[in-house]
């Protein structure tokens, strides 16, 4: 079963990919997933302040600056995982180093 873990942030202390790669607990979490062959991709996004939003109205492209919705917390990164069931996905999410500070949303893939 595949799930997307959406790891949130509020921008109080932004970390670059290089900074994250230097955090031992984050590295250990990623290595554990890789060793169990559960990761199906991971991406870190730049903050919503750097987002553009596009809408098409009457065939016309409307591009605006910023995210489509302003929220206090936003998705900073995603981890795509494949594991046995929801309990396993919950265990993986709660072991993430950010779980003590920010919520992590778990979304099952639409499989049938």
């Amino acid at each position: 079963m595949r799930y997307m873990l959406m790891i949130c942030d509020d921008g109080a202390k932004l970390e670059s990919p290089a900074e994250l790669d230097a955090k031992p607990d984050h590295v250990a979490w990623m290595r554990d997933l890789d060793e169990r062959d559960m990761s199906r991709g991971r991406y870190l996004m730049r903050p919503p302040a750097e987002a553009k939003t596009v809408r098409v109205r009457d065939g016309k492209e409307l591009v605006s600056d910023g995210p489509f919705a302003e929220t206090k917390e936003w998705v900073a990164g995603v981890e795509l995982i494949e594991c046995a069931d929801l309990d396993e996905a919950i265990a993986i999410a709660s072991a993430h180093e950010a779980a003590g500070r920010y919520p992590i949303e778990i979304r099952p893939y639409w499989e049938d």
């Binding site: 079963m1 046995a84 069931d85 929801l86 309990d87 099952p108 639409w110």
Partner: peptide, 14 residues
């Protein structure tokens, strides 16, 4: 069904 909530007695840790 969709989130695959397991059908079992949880392991000791849970």
């Amino acid at each position: 069904h969709n989130a695959r909530i397991p059908y079992r007695v949880p392991p000791p840790s849970l």
